[in-house]
Deep mutational scan, measured.
Amino acid sequence: KKIKIDLKKGPEGLGFTVVTRDSSIHGPGPIFVKNILPKGAAIKDGRLQSGDRILEVNGRDVTGRTQEELVAMLRSTKQGETASLVIAR
């Protein structure tokens, strides 16, 4: 099931960490939400869960991207702006 979640970045950030699983010589594996932090946009919104697979960030497919690339995409969202995620659960 795909779910679109918009998180408005506040002073505590987006409020979640990510982890890559099953990376191989063929490229990075899928990226999942690792933890929801006690402060930040994710816990206020309440929909994002540990174990959700991140498919898109701000309309860009993240398949084949590294964890570092995904984190850079999320960090490029400025405070007060919205990060738009599509996740699979």
Score class of each variant (00 low, 15 high):
Arg53Gly: 10
Asn58Tyr: 03
Gln49Lys: 13
Lys1Pro: 15
Leu7Thr: 00
Glu69Ile: 08
Asp6Val: 12
Gly80Val: 03
Lys4Val: 12
Lys8Phe: 10
Leu14Phe: 13
Ile87Ser: 02
Lys8Ala: 14
Leu74Pro: 02
Asp52Ile: 00
Asp61Trp: 05
Leu85Gly: 02
Val71His: 14
Lys8Ser: 14
Thr66Pro: 06
Ser23Thr: 08
Ser50Met: 14
Gln49Gly: 06
Ser23Gln: 07
Gly64Val: 09
Lys8Gln: 05
Ile54Pro: 00
Ile25Gln: 13
Asp45Met: 02
Val71Arg: 11
Pro38Tyr: 15
Gly59Ser: 08
Asn58Trp: 02
Ser23Tyr: 05
Gly10Trp: 04
Lys1Leu: 00
Met73Phe: 07
Ala83Lys: 12
Lys2Trp: 02
Asp6Glu: 09
Leu37Cys: 10
Ala83Trp: 06
Val71Gln: 04
Gly13Thr: 03
Lys39Trp: 04
Asn58Cys: 12
Pro30Gly: 05
Ile43Phe: 06
Gln49Cys: 13
Gly40Met: 02
Lys8His: 06
Thr82His: 14
Val19Leu: 15
Pro30Leu: 08
Val71Asn: 15
Gly29Gln: 11
Arg53Met: 12
Pro28His: 04
Val86Phe: 07
Leu14Gln: 01
Pro28Gly: 13
Val57Gly: 01
Phe32Gly: 02
Leu14Tyr: 12
Arg60Ile: 07
Pro38Lys: 12
Asp45Lys: 01
Gly15Arg: 00
Arg75Asn: 02
Gly46Leu: 03
Val62Met: 05
Arg60Tyr: 09
Ser24Ala: 06
Ile5Cys: 02
Glu56Trp: 06
Leu55Cys: 04
Val71Lys: 15
Asp22Phe: 04
Asp6Cys: 14
Arg47Asn: 11
Lys1Ala: 04
Arg53Pro: 02
Ala72Ile: 14
Glu81Met: 14
Leu70His: 02
Val18Asn: 01
Asn35Thr: 03
Arg60Cys: 08
Gly27His: 11
Ser23Val: 05
Gln49Met: 10
Asn35Asp: 13
Leu70Ile: 04
Lys8Leu: 05
Glu69Pro: 02
Ile87Gly: 02
Asp6Leu: 14
Arg75Ala: 10
Ala72Pro: 06
Ser50Arg: 09
Ile43Thr: 11
Leu74Asn: 03
Ile3Pro: 00
Thr20Met: 13
Thr82Val: 08
Leu85Arg: 02
Val86Ser: 12
Ile31Asp: 01
His26Leu: 13
Gly59Ile: 01
Val71Glu: 15
Ala72Ser: 12
Gly27Asp: 13
Pro30Trp: 05
Ile31Gln: 05
Gly46Pro: 02
Val33Tyr: 01
Arg47Ala: 09
Lys8Arg: 07
Lys4Met: 11
Ala83Arg: 04
Thr77Gln: 07
Thr66Lys: 07
Gln79His: 09
Pro28Trp: 08
